[in-house]
């Protein structure tokens, strides 16, 4: 039982390490299956037979997708969604109160903080995945920047750097969020993900259960759902 648990942890870590190296799902499935085959033959523990999962993943030197591939496919749309969500949040309060959208330079800098942190994610993604405190620190910085941007909102037009009609920004940001969610939904449901981890002996893909599909759809619609919640909150507190 202990052996099974430690082996499961080792295999989870191996898959994560290979994913971080942008190894294709088929190659990951092949690596996992051949490692399991040997363990079944020898009765050894994974760590004993293959050493640390991180070292083994590095030693295999499996072909990897170009580094910028996931940036183009996932990071830029997420970044655009975040930007639209932040704009929506700024515009929604002013819009429900029928006021101008007032923006100060400090507020803009604070709002830009999470956007910049996400934009530079490829530089420190490994650290976030491997060290939970890095993940907590980044989340805390983003949350703090959000709260501080609320504090830095100008109270009258004289203090503001920009005074805008909030409605076009509200509608525009909402449309961008919905368009991105529709795009992601179509991409994830109409095509079979060719990067799924597949068992080479059976050809079956893993992690395609109903639960996983629901999580994917909820993630696709995360920004519009949160924006609706913010709209409800703004209307309630009006």
């Amino acid at each position: 039982m202990i052996q099974q648990t430690s082996d499961k942890k080792w295999f989870d870590q191996l898959v994560m390490e290979l994913r971080l190296r942008q190894v294709h799902g088929n190659a990951i499935g092949d690596t996992v299956a051949s490692a399991k085959e040997l363990l079944s033959d020898t009765g050894q523990q994974a760590e004993e037979a293959f050493g640390p999962a991180r070292d083994y993943a590095a030693a295999l030197e499996l072909p990897a997708a170009p580094k910028h591939d996931w940036v183009r496919k996932a990071l830029w749309p997420s970044l655009l969604g975040l930007l639209a969500f932040l704009l929506f949040n700024q515009a929604v309060v002013s819009s429900t109160r029928s006021e101008l959208l007032l923006i100060s330079p400090a507020q803009l800098a604070l709002l830009a903080t999470p956007v910049v942190l996400v934009a530079f994610l490829p530089l420190y993604l490994d650290a976030i995945v491997r060290r939970i405190w890095v993940c907590i620190a980044i989340t805390a910085i983003c949350a703090l920047a959000g709260v501080m941007s609320g504090v830095a909102t100008p109270t009258d037009q004289a203090e503001a750097w920009l005074a805008l009609d909030p409605l076009p920004w509200l509608i525009g940001s909402a449309l961008v969020m919905v368009a991105l969610s529709v795009r992601n939904t179509i991409r994830s449901s109409s095509t079979t993900d060719d990067d799924d981890i597949t068992d080479p002996s059976s050809g079956a893909a893993s992690s395609t259960g109903t639960g996983a599909r629901v999580i994917v759809q909820v993630t696709n619609w995360m920004f519009p759902i949160l924006a609706l919640a913010m709209l409800g909150l703004a209307l309630a507190l009006r």
Binding site: T31, A35, L38, A49, F50, L60, E61
Partner: peptide, 15 residues
Amino acid sequence: IKGGTLYPLLTRYEA
């Protein structure tokens, strides 16, 4: 010979 030594070699030879 450990699997952690053999398989990376064979993977390299396959490549």
